[in-house]
Amino acid sequence: MIVGDIHELELFQVADRGVPNLERIALFVKETTNMGQFGIMIGYSSQHKSALPYQDNLFWFGDGVVTKGDWLILYTGKGTPKTEKWEPTGSNVYTVHWGRSSTIFANSYIVPILFRVDAVSVALPPSDLPQIGNSHA
């Protein structure tokens, strides 16, 4: 599948690959954008700038506007989100956490894939009927 490039964000190489609690993915904001349309997947890369995603490995950043020059640091472990100023440029550094109990990037073939959502479809919720198996003894 051939898709367009992402111009709003720049994805950097994984820092401290395989190091618990330090392994992180860095993103630089090149254009002011809403992170709600972006996410990170994990993939297997055997070719330059190309990767096949693994099953059930997706992180969604959630809605939030970031401005040009900001940094997003996604730690693969668990933790509490933080925001601080990046002294050299005065921009914000947002720290978020994936919540994985173990490190992800065990070898250099495993890479992060930044993706942008262009369209979604959500299934309708079920009708408001009595649900089977919800009774309490």
Partner: peptide
Amino acid sequence: PSDSGSDGSQIR
């Protein structure tokens, strides 16, 4: 970041 916010529970 000076404070990564990590809880330190991750393993290799």
